[in-house]
Design a protein around this nucleic acid. Structure first.
Length: 284
DNA sequence: CGCCAGGGGAGCT
DNA sequence: AGCTCCCCTGGC
């Protein structure tokens, strides 16, 4: 067991921020996380975090995974105090971190995410892992399934993943797997590329457009300047940033701001604040 | 039963 | 840039 006191870190906010589909609440402030060949149970009480692993695994894997070396408070302090909307959003999601997740897993996850909702995305991914992933046993004896390699998925018929509830997205995943296996798109090279080139390269995959590519850049490659624009974000830009998002002020970490906004819009915290009377309702 | 929306993308014009 | 299909699944 490793115990740490960590600022700007909230497991529940990360879990609900929609960047990771293999992290779930186990009740009692405890979360289960599957990442690569690692399984973790971690509990949080305020700033105290209890990682159920040894010191070595914490330092060599989980610290990087949760991006714990980075000072997110420094990003929040750079927010324009006149931008009330962003201030509120960042306050609501101040414990969010941009995780460092596996590239192939993020490609598949965000291919599945289009025209889809989070609970179903989770189920799709769980189905794929249970059917095609390697069965694993953690050091604590917990059984879980690893995410299948591109090679496994490249061998399937284009429609075969409909069995896993992917619907029309099945062929996106299978064709992308083939592109990766055949070396048309080289993941190990994408890992070394700067943001714009990586995004360009990812968009060669069938089913990957601009939004999905940005999600992959942000959540796997850790390009914090990536700013995925889904329908929710576009709505916010239209309502609060008619002259465009202040990219210059937040250069290099727009993606962090995107996550605060996204979480704020999705978590329901926005409406709670209204109910407390801190802000006027639109219809009043 | 039908309708339609859900954190887009491809392939056109 | 803007349009039209795509045609899955779940909720109503």
């Amino acid at each position: 067991m490793v115990t740490k006191t960590i600022e700007n870190f909230s497991l529940s906010q990360i879990c609900e921020s929609g960047q990771c589909f293999r992290m779930q609440s186990a009740g009692d402030d405890t979360y289960q996380v599957i990442a690569g060949n690692h399984y973790l149970e971690v509990k949080q009480q305020g700033r105290e975090c209890f990682f159920d692993c040894d010191e070595k695994e914490y330092e060599t894997f989980w610290m990087e995974y949760f991006d714990l070396d980075r000072d997110y408070g420094a990003y929040i302090r750079q927010i324009n105090p006149n931008d009330k909307y962003l201030c509120r959003a960042a306050h609501a999601g101040e414990g969010i971190r941009i995780l460092r997740q596996d590239l192939w897993e993020m490609i598949v996850s965000f291919l599945i995410s289009q025209q889809n909702n989070i609970p179903r995305i989770r189920r799709c991914i769980q189905n794929i892992c249970e059917r095609y992933g390697e069965k694993m046993i953690s050091s604590q004896g917990k059984v879980y399934y690893a995410f299948p390699q591109a090679r496994e998925l490249s061998l399937l018929e284009e429609d075969e993943l409909k069995k896993c509830n992917l619907g029309y997205r099945s062929k996106y995943v299978v064709r992308s797997a083939r592109s990766v296996v055949q070396g048309e798109v080289k993941l190990d090279e994408i890992e070394k590329m700067p943001y714009k080139r990586a995004k360009e390269e990812l968009m060669k995959l069938f089913g990957v457009g601009e939004k999905v590519a940005d999600c992959i850049c942000l959540f796997a490659l850790h390009h914090l300047q990536a700013f995925p624009k889904d329908t929710h974000i576009l709505q916010v830009l239209k309502e609060h940033y008619k002259r465009g998002f202040p990219n210059r002020r937040y250069r290099g970490f727009q993606g962090v701001m995107q996550q605060y906004i996204f979480y704020y819009e999705l978590s329901g915290l926005k409406n709670e604040e209204w109910d407390n009377g801190k802000h006027k309702r639109k219809d009043s």
